[in-house]
Design a protein around this nucleic acid. Structure first.
Length: 353
DNA sequence: TAGGCCATCTGGTCCT
DNA sequence: AGGACCAGATGGCCTA
């Protein structure tokens, strides 16, 4: 009742005001704080007016309330047996007003809190491997990817070995939804045809959920990590792929070890990631969460798959929620994190020692 | 149109 | 008492 009253009356403009905020989480947190503080202040001043008024004549108010309460209890006593515990005070006009103000303040705080949370989440989006201002990962996917990323990096540090690209991508994509998997794989410039080719070569290695993914180390390479167009990076024998330039943070991990594709021959614009058909047999985390929410996995076409082709790891428009086109446009404006370059250099040094 | 994602409101609970 | 945190409810927007 009260809820309805609030939502339908005075809070509505407030709600609409906040609802109309642009959903630009790349905005500075400070801006948001200012905004939130402002909103809080607005609510506060609005509230304090009525509150101070209320507080001012609180004595008289209470008297009035008590009178009303007594009237109410008398009425109630006639009908119902006495109840223990604190009396439920009757909502007077002033009390409702105070309650309303309290609720408004609480709402403003809650909004503020959620904005802070979103800001933090946005910061997290910026440091996981796949970041775009235009197409943000959902909250849950951001958290999952972050978890996987931490895990992957930990594994690298723990093992002290140069990681396998496929395993790395697998780890990152564990438990992610199909679109996000596509996105991440695309961001990491994992070209599907690599898998297909590799699969043809080592098909026997991909059977079963516990298959090893120790593929040949790919010679990924990117000459312009900071640019929107990256150089080709493919397996040496896969010339067809060289026209598709991909780069990703991971590549810098591997260093510039491939043949020189920096020539104009490979200076093609980024193509949309290709289709990975085939069963990846990704050994999913067996956590209930994964089982319950996501049954996604990468698929190789060469292996029996219970899923329709639409569920295969497609980088086409069908696999994306939005923004992927068949043109040679980068569907996802990739950002290589300059501020992370030192980290990759360190890792590079680590792996080349 | 269904489903996913999100922002917001709201009441409950816990803590200071 | 008031604030932080949480989870459920709700409605809007977008996409397949």
């Amino acid at each position: 009742m009260l809820t309805r009253l609030f939502s339908e009356t005075s809070l509505l403009p407030e709600v609409q005001k906040y609802s109309s905020w642009p959903d630009d989480c790349d905005e500075d947190v400070s801006d948001k704080d200012e905004r939130s503080e402002k909103s809080l202040q607005e609510v506060h001043t609005e509230g304090s007016l009525s509150e101070s008024k209320d507080d001012g004549d609180i004595g008289g108010e209470d008297d009035e309330e008590e009178e009303e309460e007594e009237e109410g209890t008398e009425e109630a006593e006639g009908e119902r047996p006495k109840k223990r515990g604190p009396k439920k005070r009757k909502m007077t006009k002033a009390r409702m007003e105070r309650s309303k103000v309290r609720r408004q303040k609480a709402n403003a705080r809650e909004r503020n809190r959620m904005h802070d949370l979103n800001s933090a989440l946005d910061n997290l989006r910026k440091v996981v491997p796949c970041y775009s201002k235009t197409q943000k990962l959902s909250k849950i996917e951001t958290l999952r990817l972050a978890k996987n990323y931490i895990w992957a990096l930990s594994e690298i540090l723990r093992s002290g070995k140069r990681p396998d690209l496929v395993a790395y991508v697998q780890t990152l994509c564990k438990g992610l939804s199909q679109p996000t998997t596509n996105l991440v794989a695309g961001c990491l410039q994992l070209n599907s045809r690599n898998f297909l080719t590799e699969q043809g070569q080592e098909a026997g290695r991909y059977h079963g959920p516990n298959s090893s993914f120790a593929m040949h180390p790919y010679n990924y390479q990117c000459s312009r990590l900071s640019g929107s167009q990256c150089q080709s990076s493919t397996m040496a024998n896969n010339h067809a792929l060289r026209s598709h330039g991909y780069c990703a943070p991971y590549e810098s991990l591997y260093g510039n070890t491939s043949p020189d594709y920096n020539s104009s021959e490979y200076d093609a614009p980024l193509s949309p990631p290709l289709c990975i058909n085939g069963n990846f047999s990704l050994k999913q985390d067996s956590s209930p969460d994964h089982d319950k929410n996501y049954h996604y996995s990468m698929h190789y076409s060469g292996l029996p798959s219970s899923r329709p082709s639409g569920h295969s790891l497609l980088f086409g428009a069908s696999g994306m929620r939005s923004g992927v086109h068949s043109e040679n446009l980068l569907p996802y404006d990739m950002h290589v994190h300059h501020d992370r370059a030192p980290m990759y250099e360190e890792l590079n040094a680590f792996f080349h020692n």
